[in-house]
């Protein structure tokens, strides 16, 4: 099923995820996310926020139900098609997932390398993005030479350098202090303002308590949309 000309970019229909024998993470979830929307996916730790995000970038498959991303039913994708879907999605993790033996530049350029850009072609864009996250001066540093906040900004730069339509952020501020958290939030807002759809998973209610953004709460077993 393809949503032609639809404004929905992510659509979940009756999605259930179970880990046998008896761990039901969530069941029968329906959710629609519009293009350009910024939503908070919330709920206590261990409720399934990460699992839901992993379903969206095909790191896992739902036990039942269907997920459409940018009009494509994920169940219809073969293994060889999954990388092409992932190029439309930028993923940010709480633990950054940076290559410690690669420089900041190389970590960010990796997203462009996989789509076939060579170093010369990607240099300008990588430097622009690093400029955007305030790390242009640290392009030759290694991740372990950076602070936690800086590492997270590198991860954000890597996620957005190939201008994905969707950004999935999995507790990106979980390891950061308030000041770094605010910086990350500002970057996410900026990305959204440029047109990216942002799904921001967090258990920290301070991040969304005064927001006009849609908040999707994941209580045990069923969805609650505010």
């Amino acid at each position: 099923m393809i949503f032609a000309e639809s404004s929905t970019i992510i659509h979940l229909q009756g999605v259930t995820k179970e880990y046998p024998p008896d761990n039901i993470v969530f069941s029968n979830i329906d959710l629609e996310i519009e293009k350009g929307e910024f939503i908070f996916l919330t709920g206590p730790s261990g409720i399934g926020k990460t699992t839901l995000l992993r379903l969206l970038f095909c790191a896992e498959q739902p036990t039942s139900g269907e997920i459409w991303v940018d009009g494509v039913a994920l169940s219809s994708l073969s293994n060889s098609q999954i990388p092409y879907l992932r190029r439309k999605i930028g993923v940010i993790f709480q633990d950054f997932k940076l290559l410690s033996d690669h420089t900041v530049f190389d970590n960010v350029a990796l997203s462009l390398e996989v789509i076939g850009l060579n170093r010369r072609q990607s240099r300008k864009r990588v430097m622009q993005v690093l400029e955007g996250v305030g790390l242009a001066g640290k392009w030759s540093n290694y991740p372990l030479q950076l602070s936690g906040g800086e590492q997270q900004r590198v991860a954000i730069a890597r996620a957005v350098v190939n201008r994905p339509a969707i950004v999935l952020a999995d507790e990106p501020t979980g390891n950061l202090d308030q000041e770094r958290t605010n910086e990350v939030m500002m970057l996410m807002e900026e990305l959204n303002a440029r047109g990216a759809t942002v799904v921001f998973a967090t258990h920290d209610d301070r991040l969304y308590e005064n927001t006009h953004r849609r908040v999707v709460k994941l209580p045990e077993g069923k969805f609650e949309i505010s």
């Binding site: 790191a59 390398e113 996989v114 789509i115």
Partner: peptide, 15 residues
């Protein structure tokens, strides 16, 4: 870990 990250950013198996 490096392979996981590559897959995450959309690298094909050939890449």
């Amino acid at each position: 870990e490096e392979l996981k990250i590559m897959r995450l950013v959309g690298a094909t198996n050939t890449f």
